[in-house]
Structures are given as C-alpha cells and as structure tokens.
Design a binder for these strands. Structure first.
Length: 575
RNA sequence: GUCCCCGUAGCUCAGCAGGAUAGAGCAACGGAUUCCUAAUCCGUAGGUCGCAGGUUCGAAUCCUGCCGGGGACACCA
C-alpha cells in the first residue's frame, strides 16, 4: 500500500471506531498546495460531520487527537472549516525514498484491486495514404493510455481497425490503377475525386512489376479487386512504418472486410439485434434546418434511442447494403465476444456525433456488461513560426507524420502531444519544438533525468563507486530540508497519480506530474548554489550524501517510469 | 434547429471526480554562473476563473439558462 492509502486506511479505522459509517468513500487524503499546512491533509471531518449530525471542527479535533498517536504522524492539527493537517514523521517519508528507488515495484502500488481486460482501439486511419500529423495525436494518446492502463494492472490489447471495405478503398484502387498505367509509360491525368498524392507511385510500380500489362485491357470489375488488395497492403505497410517511427505497435490489426468474409458477421449481429426487437423498418424524422434536400426514405433502423441516443440510426442503406455504422456495430460485437470488460475508442474530433450511437450499441449488445469509453482528440494546429501549415489529405500536399517525426524527433512529438488534455485543441509549432529551448517541456523533464544521473556520476567521482551502492537501505533520516520533503511528498503521490490518470483515461496527467517533479528537482539542485549545505553531493559527509543520492535515485526512477509509459526516452546525459 | 467539446493572467494551458489566499510555462521587468550541466533557478508584475441564477458549511470545479469559439449532425467512411 502506498503512503496516502496507508494514511487513509488509518483515518477510516479511527472514524469507524468512533461509530461513523456514512460517507466513508468521500474521505480523501491529499497533499495540500501550501506546505505550511503540513505534508498531507484529510477532509474526513467535513464530509462525515453532516451524516453523523456533528460539528465538523469538533469531529476534526477528535480525529486529529487520534491521528497524533500514530507512528507516522508528528503533528495533526485542525484548520479552516475542518481540515485535519498532518505532518509526517521523518521515517514515514523516508520509507518512500527507499521504496521508490525500485521504480517498477513502486509504480506497481498503483495496481487496481479489480484488474480488467481492456481493449484500446486507436489510430485506425483509413489505408488510403500516409498518415498526417493529425493522426499522430490519436496514435500517441492511445498508445500512452494503453501503457498507463497496464501500469494500473489491467490487461490491455492495442488494436487498429482497418477500414478496408468501403467506397474509399475503391477510390484508392482507381488512383493506384492510374499510377500503374503511368508506370507502364502512359501519361496520366488524375481527375478530381481520386487521390493525387505521389505516394501511390510505388504502388503503380509494384503492380507493373508483378502484373506487367495484364491489367491494362481488363474491365474495371476485374482489375479493381486485384489493385485494391495490393494497394491496401502497401498502404498498411506504410502505416506500420509510420507508427514504428513513433515507436507504436498494435497487438491486433482488425480488417473490416474480415467481418464479411468468409462469414458475414455483420448479418449475424444485425440478426441478433433484430431478434432482440431492437431493429425496425421506418423513416427518420426530418431534422430541423435540413428542410431543402431532405427526402423521406424507408430504412432499416436500430433503436439506439433506447440506450440514450437522440435518434435511431440506419443500419442498411436504401439499396440494401450495410452502413458503416452496421459494420462498426459488428466489429464492436466481435470485441465484446473476445471477452473484454471495457472498450476504449480513441477518436478524432470529427467523430463526435458517433459516440452516443456506438455507446448505445455496445450497451445493447453486451446487455450493459461492457462499458465503451470514447475519447476524442481535438485537432492539431500545425504552424511554423506562427504561419499555418496546411494539411489536407486531398491536396496531396499535407505534412506527413513521418516528416514531423524526422524533423523534430520522436520524443518531442510524443511529449508535446501528451502535454495537453486530449480534448483541447493543440498548437504544434515546428520552430518552437525544434528550438530545444525550455519552451519545450520534454527537454525540461529529460534534463531532470539526466541531471540525476549526472549527480550520481559526480558523487562517484568525489567519493568512490561504493557511495551509490545499497542506496535502497539508507535511513534517509537526514532529509529534513523543506525542498527534500517536497520531493518526498511528490514521490509519495506518484502511485495515486498513475491510478487517477488511468481511471480518468488522461495520459496528460502523467506528463504534468513529471514536469512538476522535474521542476522541484531543478529547484532543489539550484538551492545548493546558495547554500552549499543543501548540495546533493557533500564530500565531507558521506552519510547524508548517501541519503540524498537515494532521494535523487528515487526521483530518477519515477521519472524513468513515467517517461517510459509516455514512450519518451529517459537519457543519461543530454546532447 | 439538435448534439458534443472548449471559454481560467497579454499568449499557450494545468487545476488531481467541490475544499483552505486560483497555478505553471512563454512574453515583460529585476536578479543568480570561482560552486554537483545557466538546456537551470530566484524575485516582481499580471486574473470580476465568459455572463446570470441554483445546489451547500464551501463552486473555476456540480445543475439550469444565456453569450462567444470549434466540431459533428439520414443511405461519408
């Protein structure tokens, strides 16, 4: 159990002994903003007073008195409307310094008591071209989220849904076919509506190499499936390469077409919904403001309104073919069938209207057993020196993910994408990110890690290699400086941060926590300039140096854990 | 017209599932380098938390209604 939880358990014990039962789950233990309020504070008295019919401050006094008797607590005082502020014993905080040095074991304290099987679907970019910067955000957020869920103890499958069955892959095939003829020496003209990007040139060449002129005189119905399959394969290969450049790999690539062949799983899912009475033939009401181009159409509809959607949704088009939504329902049905407790979709901002219907479908298909969470990534505004950089998939002039990674580096791309709440728009400026100034938080955090390593190197130089051995057993009782205690408090809350970030599905919390920890470390390092007694390495005092090295190592271990979860390198030295 | 997201310092954003005088970075101004990496740090200045109600001991945080910005809205994936 980590320290905040230990304290909370202690408080719950005390409070239960006093006969209080109601509202226990609202009791929290947090590190107050203002360190003069103590190391930790609890709201127990305030949330429990009302149901117990007691006065908050009076109850707080009682709790404080009992807490004061604990081995962990030096002082417990009542403040404000009924906070109980706790100052911890040196030993209590010292235990964190020892524990945190084993970063993995320490982070494992964040593991959930009820681990789940979770599927995280992310990226799922259409295989019609290389990925652009917008895709990078969903990719990074999804990947980091998956990692954080794993730290929380869940079993995670990282999944990519390949939209290889719709009209857009036919467009891809026609575009590739032109490139094929081009490769055979023809002069081609790419009409509007097809993909003009020259990334299809290699596809054309590959087709020419394997098929020669065989496809030239065939009717479209003959060559299209052939060209399409080749094009999709090559596009997906490219997608994987692009993702690899970001150090992202998926466990499962799920093909939309595999829902139709060899077995029609879409039909099976639709049938099941029909048996459950959730499907009917009907026409949708005309939306207001859509008066002009609207015509009433009889369609096969899913009763998503029964599960919180605003309107029922079409599963079959008027020509009898499935809608994209129908395929997607079948796909999620397949995921449910694979035994996941929780499904997560990381989506682009343009999929906002899709969330309610899919959530409804999952609720219907799983009988409410499986939860679907959709997380939206807002747009990335790409600029260079303040000037907007266009990225349009149609224009063929978009900035690809690969270009960005090659220009600014994987670490910077990943960290920048995560140093913002996913549902807030993101500004990404090439010049700022490549500047490598402190404007760029990734360097700030990486530098903190490198600095920890540097301190250890310096210590070895001054005091010999033994000075950094066996640090896991130090007493850490000499770490009484306010800055040192601040670091210890932040370390103590690390497992809580991980747990919260996982439960809220907000990877950016990890990034911010690391930034804060880095800041506190840099601060303490600099305080050693004014006051040499505070330096991490003191050649005249081997014992306190070892305590401080243990603290430094604990900070380093936590930063390393966090950066690893975000997929960012933790360097031993900068440059 | 409906739905979703956003509205916090000049700029870019945090604010941990309501808590104690609202935080950070950048920009501005003033400092710190014989000293473990100045890619760092310290200090000053800067905010009616979009507006108006409501819920309660307590609201930037929850609810309702407006205003403003972005996105999505039947056989497009």
């Amino acid at each position: 159990m980590h320290l905040p939880d230990t304290l909370r358990a202690l408080i719950i014990d005390i409070v239960q002994e006093a006969g209080l039962r109601e509202g226990l789950d609202r009791v929290t233990v947090e590190a107050p903003r203002d360190p003069s309020h103590g190391d930790f504070a609890t709201n127990a008295a305030m949330v429990l007073a009302k149901p117990a019919g007691r006065k908050p401050r009076e109850l707080a006094e009682e709790i404080a008195a009992r807490l004061g008797q604990s081995d962990l607590v030096v002082a417990a005082s009542v403040a404000g409307p009924g906070f109980v502020n706790l100052t911890l014993t040196q030993e209590a905080l010292a235990s964190v310094v020892r524990a945190a040095q084993d970063g993995a074991a320490f982070t494992a304290l964040a593991r959930s008591a009820t681990p789940q099987k979770v599927n995280v679907e992310y990226v799922s970019a259409n295989p019609t071209g290389p990925m652009h910067v917008g895709h990078a955000r969903g990719a990074v957020v999804g990947d980091a989220l998956a990692s954080i869920l794993e730290l929380r103890g869940h079993t995670v499958t990282r999944e990519y849904y390949i939209n290889d069955a719709g009209a857009q892959v036919d467009v891809l095939a026609r575009s590739a076919y032109l490139r094929y003829r081009e490769a055979l020496g023809e002069t081609i003209d790419i009409p509007a509506g097809l993909y003009p990007g020259d990334y299809l040139v290699p596809v054309g060449e590959a087709l020419a190499a394997t098929h020669g002129r065989a496809l030239v005189d065939q009717p479209e119905a003959e060559w299209l499936p052939v060209v399409r399959d080749v094009a999709i394969d090559l596009m997906m290969e490219r997608v994987r390469e692009d993702l690899a450049a970001l150090n992202i790999t998926h466990d499962v690539f799920f093909s939309e077409r595999s829902l139709r062949q060899p077995e029609d799983l879409v039909a099976a899912t639709v049938e099941r919904l029909r048996r459950d009475g959730l499907i009917y033939e009907g026409t949708l009401p005309r939306p207001k403001g859509q008066s002009e181009e609207w015509e009433d159409r009889e369609q096969t509809l899913f009763r998503s309104t029964q599960f919180g959607d605003e309107i029922d949704r079409a599963l079959l088009k008027s020509d009898g073919s499935y809608t994209y939504f129908a395929s997607d329902i079948a796909y999620h049905d397949n995921k449910i069938g694979r035994g996941f407790d929780r499904l997560v979709d990381v989506l682009g901002a343009d999929h906002g209207g899709y969330v309610k219907r899919m959530t409804a479908a999952v609720a219907a298909l799983s009988g409410g057993r499986v939860r679907l969470d959709c997380f939206m990534c807002q747009l990335v505004k790409l600029t260079r020196g303040g000037e907007p950089v266009k990225m349009s998939k149609r224009s063929g002039e978009f900035v690809t993910l690969r270009e960005v990674v090659e220009e600014v580096g994987r670490d910077a791309v990943r960290f920048m994408m995560l140093f913002r709440k996913a549902d807030a728009p993101l500004d990404f400026d090439f010049e700022k990110v490549t500047e490598q100034s402190r404007d760029n938080p990734v360097f700030y955090v990486q530098y903190a890690h490198a600095r920890c390593q540097s301190v250890k190197r310096q210590a070895v130089e001054a005091l010999g290699p033994q000075v950094i051995e066996g640090l896991a057993d130090v007493s850490a009782l000499s770490l009484t400086d306010e800055g040192e205690r601040a670091l210890m408090r932040q370390l103590a809350t690390w497992p809580v941060t991980v747990a919260n970030a996982a439960d809220a599905a907000e990877p950016h919390r990890i990034a911010f926590a690391l930034h804060e920890l880095a800041s506190t470390l840099h601060m303490q390092w600099n305080r050693g300039k004014d006051n040499s007694a505070l330096r991490f390495v003191n050649p005249d005092d081997r014992s306190s140096t070892r305590d401080r090295l243990a603290l430094v190592e604990a900070v380093r271990a936590v930063i390393a854990q966090g950066l690893a979860a975000l997929g960012v390198m933790a360097p031993d030295e900068m440059r």
